Computed example of a mutant assay.
Amino acid sequence: MNDLQKALSLIEAQQKKAGAETPAWCVGQQLADILNGQPAAAQIVAEDLGTTGMGIADCEKKIAEFASKNRTGNVGFCGPADADRIIREFYGIPKLEIVTAKTQAAPAEHRRKAIRLEDFL
C-alpha cells in the first residue's frame, strides 16, 4: 500500500467514525481532494492522521473556530478558500502554485525585444 492509499484509507476510516455528511466528514473529503492533487504530501498526512489531536475531527474544530470568529448575526461562516488554507496549515501541506501563461515569466532568450523604427533605417 503506497502513502496515498494509506492516507485515503485513514481518512475513510475517520469519516465512518464521524458519520456521513457531518462537518468532519466534509473535511475528510476536502483533504482527500487535496491529496489526490498533491500525492507527495500523503506520507506526512498519513502520519498525522495516526497521531492524537491530528484527526479530521480535530481539523474541523479549527475550521469551526474560524467560522465562529467570522459571524454575521447568529451565523458563522468559513468559505472554501479559508477551509482549504486551514486544512493545509493544519497538516503542513504547501499551497499548490498554479502556473499559467500569464504568471509564468518567459525565459530571457524567448522574450521579445522592443522593436524601434530606427533599427530599420
Rank of each mutant, 00 (worst) to 15 (best):
M1I: 07
N2W: 12
N2S: 13
N2H: 15
D3W: 00
L4P: 07
Q5P: 01
Q5M: 15
A7E: 07
A7I: 12
L8N: 03
L8F: 00
S9M: 06
L10G: 01
L10C: 05
A13D: 01
Q14T: 15
Q15K: 15
K16D: 09
A18G: 03
G19E: 08
G19D: 00
G19I: 01
A20F: 07
E21V: 00
E21C: 02
T22S: 04
T22F: 02
P23T: 15
A24E: 06
C26Y: 14
C26E: 11
G28H: 12
Q29R: 12
Q29T: 08
Q29G: 11
Q29A: 09
L31H: 02
A32H: 00
A32Q: 12
A32E: 07
D33R: 06
G37S: 04
G37C: 11
G37P: 05
Q38V: 07
Q38H: 14
Q38P: 04
A40F: 10
A40L: 06
A41Y: 03
Q43Y: 00
Q43P: 00
V45N: 12
V45I: 07
A46C: 05
A46L: 10
E47L: 07
G50W: 05
G53N: 12
M54S: 13
A57Q: 13
D58A: 12
C59F: 09
E60F: 09
E60K: 12
K61S: 02
K61C: 07
K62E: 13
A64K: 05
E65K: 14
E65N: 08
F66H: 15
F66K: 13
A67H: 05
A67R: 08
A67P: 04
K69I: 03
N70F: 08
G73M: 08
V75M: 03
F77I: 06
F77L: 14
C78T: 10
C78Q: 09
C78K: 08
G79C: 14
P80V: 10
A83H: 01
D84N: 08
D84A: 13
R85C: 01
I86Q: 08
I87G: 01
R88D: 01
E89L: 15
Y91H: 09
G92P: 06
P94D: 04
P94G: 06
P94A: 11
P94L: 06
K95I: 04
E97V: 13
E97W: 02
V99Q: 08
T100H: 09
K102V: 03
K102T: 09
T103R: 05
Q104F: 02
A105E: 10
A106N: 00
A106D: 02
A108Y: 04
A108N: 05
E109T: 14
H110P: 00
R112W: 03
A114L: 11
I115N: 11
R116S: 06
L117S: 02
L117G: 11
E118H: 02
E118L: 04
E118C: 03
L121M: 10
